[in-house]
């Protein structure tokens, strides 16, 4: 065994020297190259992962917003429908009311018109009556005044007037 070790040139001092060499090399490379580079790489990896999470969150929020939007929209639609139907009902009512008022007004106007017409008519009637009376009186005087005394003349006048008064309704 020892002969083999000598033949292969194994020397514990050289082994140790090589081990130390390797240790130094690992330390320096780790300190100056690996750690900074791996640090940058891991940081970048983390950033990418963070961005991915943020994107997923944003997507989720976007979805929420979309559902919220749909909700608000449907609510608004419902409200609009309600408002329109209310307005329809109200306008119908108003139209009806207006019709009613107009009808009432028309009725009162008609009634008033009738009354004033009636009044005018009776006024005209009485005017005509008095006019006819005076005409008849004048006619009686003109036709019989020469040959009748005053008394008879007055009597005739009164009779004629009475007849006119009685039949005035049928004349006019």
């Amino acid at each position: 065994m020892s002969e083999l070790i000598t033949k292969l040139g194994i020397d514990w001092k050289l082994l140790l020297a090589q081990a130390i060499n390797f240790g130094i090399l690992v330390y320096i490379l780790k300190r100056f190259v690996y750690t900074p580079i791996i640090g940058v790489l891991e940081k970048r990896r983390q950033d990418i992962a963070d961005t991915a999470t943020k994107t997923a969150e944003a997507d989720l929020r976007l979805q929420d917003i979309e559902t919220e939007k749909q909700k608000v929209l449907s609510e608004a639609r419902n409200q609009a429908k309600e408002i329109v139907s209310k307005a329809e009902v109200m306008s119908k009512k108003q139209v009806e009311e207006t019709f009613k008022i107009a009808e009432q007004k028309a009725n009162t106007i008609i009634a008033e018109g009738k009354i004033s017409l009636e009044r005018e008519r009776s006024k005209i009637k009485s005017e005509i009556k008095s006019e006819i009376g005076s005409v008849v009186a004048a006619a009686v005087e003109k036709t019989v005044g020469d040959f009748m005394n005053k008394e008879a003349e007055e009597k005739l006048k009164a009779e004629a007037l009475a007849i006119i008064h009685q039949n005035a309704e049928t004349f006019i």
Partner: peptide, 17 residues
């Protein structure tokens, strides 16, 4: 050689990602 390369590289490495 490796150590010198490591030191030179280390100077040129930007640690800010």
């Amino acid at each position: 050689i490796l150590i010198i390369t490591a030191l030179v590289l280390s100077k040129n490495i930007k640690r800010d990602d």
